[in-house]
Design a protein around this nucleic acid. Structure first.
Lengths: 360, 360
DNA sequence: TGTTAGCACTCATTCTCTTTGAGTGCTAAA
DNA sequence: TTTAGCACTCAAAGAGAATGAGTGCTAACA
């Protein structure tokens, strides 16, 4: 299912018999490809005449072939006397086997580079910039999922009193993310209690992978605090909450683009945007190379007629997250996939490079 | 212009001559009021027959009066053979003088109370909850503007090293807001430099009103750092940035409601949501009691056919912020204004009360 | 056997024309 | 001053009719 075999192009796919015995000769594939290409630019059902510009055959022949492609489920007709529109099965074949990606010119690369910040403070800044840039370029929504929480460590937890039984807990992770939470206790903490917590954290939380912070583990830790347990356990449970929030972070950009996209159903978009957190589940499952998925193939991804393309980026050889593009199915895959891949490869370079330069 | 004279109702406004010599007798006002009431529930132009249910007169008489109200600019006709729709001038008169607010029943008050959190950690939490609740109740968008930054003080600034020339600056204000910012320097800071900055902040920033943090003042401060200026000035400028960000904080809820509201232009809504920050300017100007404004009256508030209602809340007798409602002009003012006012008064009570209990 | 020209057919879209009905303004009488 | 009555207006809804892009099928052709 994954698209490892991209950049194949029509020519290579001389294969004439498919597993289910379907006839799929070269011309038919060319026709399918042409239908998708045309439909992507026009948005209108594509007729046999339009295909004649791409394939050397008469319109009648093309019609015959198209009728067969329809029977096989790659194309469909909105109504009897209309042209053909690709089905998601058609898109799938197109994306996996037929499409030829537009390689990026140096000019384009420069343009994309210029949309990334010259200097970024946190990894998050960089990735969000890329997300925003991609949204702007493609007029789609983009999404970033950080998988870093899984692999990153707690590098610091501090408790800072801020008057009247109020405490700010600050947490910093090894990948530079920072979270704070205000916490209100029943009593003021003594200097001694604070110091104990400080040491406790240093010994038991600093350097611990976020993935290891679980309800069970934290309960054990709390118990280990002995006499301090009663007073300090609320702080520990806040820390637990914070790690959970880190884990679930997805960020969406360019929502506006979806709302103005006339291929998609407005109400679906609105309810999708309302609980964007649901996205996480899918993106999680796509952490393994470029992935194109279509709404009909995936129960949870509910926007009709939409597709989602995701590509992972990594840090020092380890998966660090995933950048995605959400738009209508009728999207310029040949152009946008290279954009997406360029960005993720740049991100991979930049966040890995940083450490090489700066670790001592 | 402000609606200090609410809860007046038709009966009180026996006034028959208005400043510009317009005839405005009781019946005409009743008719206007009836048109608005009907239009608010139906959304359709209101005809003379429908008014007969509210005003004891024949449809012909009502038509005559309506024709005059139209001449005076309070009503308008979408087309010749349609009923009448209030103009914004009509709404203005209705809201300021004619409308009778629905007083809240105990039941309703309980319902509203139950939508606020029993216990809240920061003021922000409370206000945001109210904003969300109001959005849900009214199916409009709601907005919160904090004016606290203006009156609140810096209560703490901390710099926390987080490895490799990276520092987190944490700022806490007297009203419990917390901000952090990651800052990357050219060099690592020595322990001594950090300590100097710590003391410097304690002496020069703690307890300073946010309003006094200006470019000029900060520059002076930076200069006063003497030998440390070079290395530490980036930190100071980050602090400056943070205060600016605090100042500009508006938060919008229920955007979805605007998008599904068919009285409003979708593209306008989308571009409005895109630069929501512009809102700040208006809300600032409304910090003086309940305020209803209509888009045509206000250049910057650009959504056609929309209105915005704002009400301030305060803390210990001092203006603390403002809660607002943005929706179509055709909105149930009589019902929603009491909601809004109830929430702001509860907020005022709760955030003031807290301090009474807890200050020692 | 595969390809193509030709033709009848389909059907969404667009247009015009008509009907409907809610609502008006005006006038003349009460 | 109010009202009943009537002629008038006009958006909205509906019914055909015309248009044209596109089809499937068939029969001739290479």
């Amino acid at each position: 299912m994954s698209a490892n075999t991209r950049k194949l192009g029509v020519l290579n796919s001389k294969a004439s018999e498919r597993r289910d015995g379907e006839q799929m000769d070269d011309r038919k594939l060319k026709i399918l490809s042409a239908v998708v290409d045309e439909y992507i630019v026009s948005g209108e059902p594509v007729g046999s005449k339009a295909i004649m510009a791409h394939v050397k055959a008469s319109s009648a022949t093309i019609r015959n072939e198209m009728a067969e492609l329809e029977k096989q489920g790659y194309l469909e007709q909105p109504h009897t006397s209309a042209g053909r529109v690709p089905t998601y099965k058609g898109y799938r074949l197109y994306v996996d086997k037929l499409m030829e990606q537009d390689p990026l010119s140096e000019e384009e690369k420069n343009k994309l580079d210029s949309m990334l910040p010259d200097d970024f403070v946190t990894e998050k800044d960089l990735v969000e910039s890329a997300s925003l840039a991609l949204a702007e370029l493609t007029k789609c929504a983009t999404v970033v999922a950080n998988s870093t929480p899984k692999f990153s460590l707690i590098s610091k937890v501090e408790v800072i009193p801020t008057g009247k039984r109020m405490y700010v807990i600050l947490m910093i992770t090894s990948n530079g993310e920072i979270k704070n939470k205000v916490c209100r206790l029943e009593f003021d903490l003594t200097h001694e209690q604070l110091e104990f917590f400080d040491n406790f954290v240093k010994q038991n939380l600093n350097g611990v992978p976020i993935s290891e912070i679980s309800d069970a583990n934290m309960e054990k830790l709390t118990e280990a605090m002995g006499a301090y347990m009663m007073t300090l356990s609320p702080l520990v449970s806040e820390v637990l909450k914070m790690t959970k929030e880190l884990d679930r972070s997805v960020s969406l950009k360019g929502q506006k683009n979806l709302l103005t996209c006339k291929d998609l159903d407005q109400t679906e978009i609105i309810s999708f945007l309302d609980n964007e957190k649901e996205l996480m589940a899918f993106i999680d499952s796509t952490f393994s190379g470029l992935n194109v998925m279509f709404s009909p193939e995936n129960d949870g991804f509910v926007i009709h007629n939409s597709s989602m393309i995701t590509a992972p980026f990594s840090k020092d050889g380890q998966m660090a997250g995933s950048l995605g593009l959400i738009g209508p199915m009728r999207i310029d895959y040949a152009k946008f996939i290279p954009y997406l891949e360029y960005f993720t490869s740049r991100i991979t370079d930049l966040i890995s490079e940083r450490d090489d330069n700066e670790d001592e």
